[in-house]
């Protein structure tokens, strides 16, 4: 099934340009694994990057002959094993030649595509889930300052506490689905909410809804229960 809710252009451009922070890149790249449409879009945006690079004024930095000497003298040396991105890219820009590919022994849990799988260190069940009323959450990437990155598991048919955000929130559905004021979100769909949005997602009946959620500032709970919970429960 092809997703119907996609990241906005801004995120895709920043991803292609390489200026997106790691937690946001993780959400975008995981969406890409589930969305052929956006993969194609990123291909085009990378092509645009190449075109802009070609047009970049070379006059500012004339070709340095010594640099060319240095490179030519090293062509016959074996390819260095460079640290590459955690997963090899679509057009092979990762580790050079002989570098051992960071390959999973088994495909593992197919509910979780790469690159997110590489961040879990095991299956969904092995995560350190913290139970809350109606949902569980597990923290990822806790070393990325300014962001909260979590997997949320909302019990099927359950409503999350209503909340607003101080910053932006990106939520990517992995299993099940949820609805809020903005629509219905299923596997691969990406929901974007900014500070102006107050929302209360309700998980579809049937299967628990597992989402990857990244916020760039702590959320604020609204509503009476939310206010009560707020000091303890930083959603």
């Amino acid at each position: 099934m092809i997703p119907t809710h996609h990241p906005s252009d801004d995120y895709l451009i920043a991803y292609a340009a390489g200026s997106l922070e790691e937690p946001l890149s993780l959400v975008v790249a995981t969406h890409l694994a589930l969305c052929p449409r956006c993969r194609k879009e990123v291909e085009r945006l990378e092509a645009l990057g190449g075109v802009l690079l070609e047009d970049e004024a070379a006059a500012e930095t004339a070709t340095d002959e010594r640099a060319l000497d240095s490179v030519l003298s090293r062509l016959d040396a074996p390819a260095p094993i460079a640290p590459g991105p955690i997963a090899p890219g679509p057009i092979a820009t990762g580790p050079i030649a002989t570098a051992p590919k960071p390959r999973q022994a088994a495909p593992g849990d197919l509910r979780v595509p790469a690159p997110l799988r590489d961040y879990l260190g095991g299956g969904l069940e092995q995560l350190d889930w913290k139970a809350h009323k109606g949902f569980d959450e597990a923290e990822l990437l806790s070393d990325a300052p300014g962001f909260r990155t979590r997997l949320m598991r909302i019990k099927s048919g359950t409503a999350m506490p209503a909340h607003t955000h101080r910053g932006n929130e990106l939520t990517l559905v992995l299993t099940g689905g949820f609805s809020d004021e903005h629509g219905h979100f299923l596997r691969g769909d990406l929901a974007e909410a900014d500070a102006s949005v107050k929302h209360q997602p309700i998980a579809d009946p049937g299967e628990d809804c597992i989402c990857l959620a990244v916020t760039d500032a702590p959320l604020r709970l609204t509503g009476p229960v939310g206010r009560l919970l707020n000091p303890f429960l930083r959603i």
Binding site: I2, P36, P85, P90, G94, P107, L110
Partner: peptide, 18 residues
């Protein structure tokens, strides 16, 4: 010095064009 997560074209979980 950060990572840029990328999808894996060989991933069996990858969703392909119908």
């Amino acid at each position: 010095r950060i990572r840029r997560p990328e999808f894996d074209p060989e991933d069996p979980a990858l969703v392909r064009e119908p």
